[in-house]
């Protein structure tokens, strides 16, 4: 373990922790309020993301490249896009939780178009989000927004493939 790198990586987090503890002791209200906000996010990050990454890791070792290439690769057409939309809809979490999944799909041979269709569907059509949206903004609003969004992020996928080229690959995120 490289302690120097570790210290550098977590410097800001450590300072923030000190600031929060200090705020709690001194009753510094803004500090406490900011930590409360942070707490909501960090619970999500520390419960949700490790599981996502574990699944991505298992996916990496188990799923053969050929099957991904065949179903959502370059030759997959519209059915391939439907597969990634379905996958995205069944997920939850903030957009950055989709990036490692996009990486692993890309590594296994998913087409550039389908990678960005996946990101679009993940951000706009995931079921937990839709149920929430229906609750607050109504069924008609949610339905209309979803209907107009769907063709647009397919267009975005096609355009992204044109801009980046078919050989573009998502990186590991280092």
């Amino acid at each position: 373990m490289n302690y120097r790198k570790l210290a550098k990586d977590y410097l800001w987090a450590a300072l923030f922790l000190l600031f929060s503890i200090g705020s709690a002791f001194l009753g510094f209200k803004p500090g406490i309020a900011i930590f409360r906000n942070f707490n909501v996010f960090i619970i999500e990050v520390l419960t949700f993301l490790p599981l996502m990454f574990l699944l991505v890791g298992l996916f990496d070792v188990w799923v053969p490249k050929e099957s991904i290439e065949k179903h959502i690769g370059r030759q997959s057409g519209l059915v391939g896009s439907l597969w990634v939309i379905l996958l995205a809809m069944l997920q939850a979490g903030p957009l950055y939780a989709a990036f490692p999944v996009a990486y692993i799909l890309s590594k296994k041979g998913a087409s550039v178009r389908n990678i960005f269709v996946y990101l679009g569907a993940f951000s706009c059509l995931k079921l937990p989000l839709l149920t929430f949206e229906i609750g607050f903004l109504g069924f008609k609003f949610t339905l209309l927004r979803s209907l107009f969004t769907l063709p647009l992020f397919i267009v975005i996928g096609v355009l992204m493939e044109k801009i980046l080229g078919k050989d573009y690959r998502v990186r590991e995120g280092k």
């Binding site: 977590y10 987090a13 574990l54 890791g57 298992l58």
Partner: peptide, 18 residues
């Protein structure tokens, strides 16, 4: 191997995310 790979990616992302 899958575990290690997944966790490696997680700890790569964690500092900037924090």
């Amino acid at each position: 191997v899958g575990f290690k790979r997944g966790m490696g990616m997680f700890f790569n992302l964690l500092p900037v995310l924090l």
